[in-house]
Design a protein around this nucleic acid. Sequence first.
DNA 1: CGGGATCCTGCCTGATACTG
DNA 2: CAGTATCAGGCAGGATCCCG
Lengths: 137, 137
Amino acid sequence: MSQGNIHVSVQADESECVPTECTILDVLDRISSKWSIAILLEAANGPVRFTELERSVKGISRRMLTLTLRNLERDGLLVRTVYPTIPPKVEYTETAMARDLHESLAGLTAWAERHRAAIALARSGYDRAASADKWLG
Amino acid sequence: MSQGNIHVSVQADESECVPTECTILDVLDRISSKWSIAILLEAANGPVRFTELERSVKGISRRMLTLTLRNLERDGLLVRTVYPTIPPKVEYTETAMARDLHESLAGLTAWAERHRAAIALARSGYDRAASADKWLG
DNA sequence: CGGGATCCTGCCTGATACTG
DNA sequence: CAGTATCAGGCAGGATCCCG
């Protein structure tokens, strides 16, 4: 029951970072989401279309696909090309910046492949120990 | 989340990671959070203590620090060592798996450093164009 | 086909206070 | 020092409908 403190959450939130004060972690936070990585990996094989991504990036909702694509485009990692045909055709192409990132992304995925079994194991081990502690006090 | 991914049998267990669904992206999603990365980078320089992290990882709340540390420990990336002294002392040490990841993380951070200005620029450019569209219909 | 707009839910997150 | 407990707000993200 905290009462009466009139604190108006004065977070001068500069999540929209100014060019000179954009920290590395801020940048990483933008591109390290599950969907961003998936999309970037797909786009590395050549231009991709919306519906194509909707199929290949399994589990993604239409909304998240749209939003993630927008953000990647906004950050200069993808270029959106619209062909005014009927039906419409939109292609997303990776930029040079994205190509440069792709190497690191490959490193990450390689790591994930190498250790995903170990991680799953560590998890179950941790959980088992946690349950045990619960009973043993 | 429909199936369709190739098996690659991870005999993992019944944790949140079902064998057929334990994809690389799932693993990445665990460690690619802003705080996880920051903490792992700190831990790479040697064992770190709770308050030490609270200071160095700027902007993190006590709650998030605790939660992120728990998850990293659970996934086998950090080892938590408690010294039953007064006052208590707890050290978090990276595991071999984390050390292996650190190389990739360094690659990512290097990329972020190289392109953070370009990203900020792309953003402001995109936003400017978006505002313009808004007025031009 | 490629989205935009809207509603709604639950988890993520921060702030604060308390504990061993 | 190193957390846990609790409350409250925000926004990520799914579902749905609609439009050019």
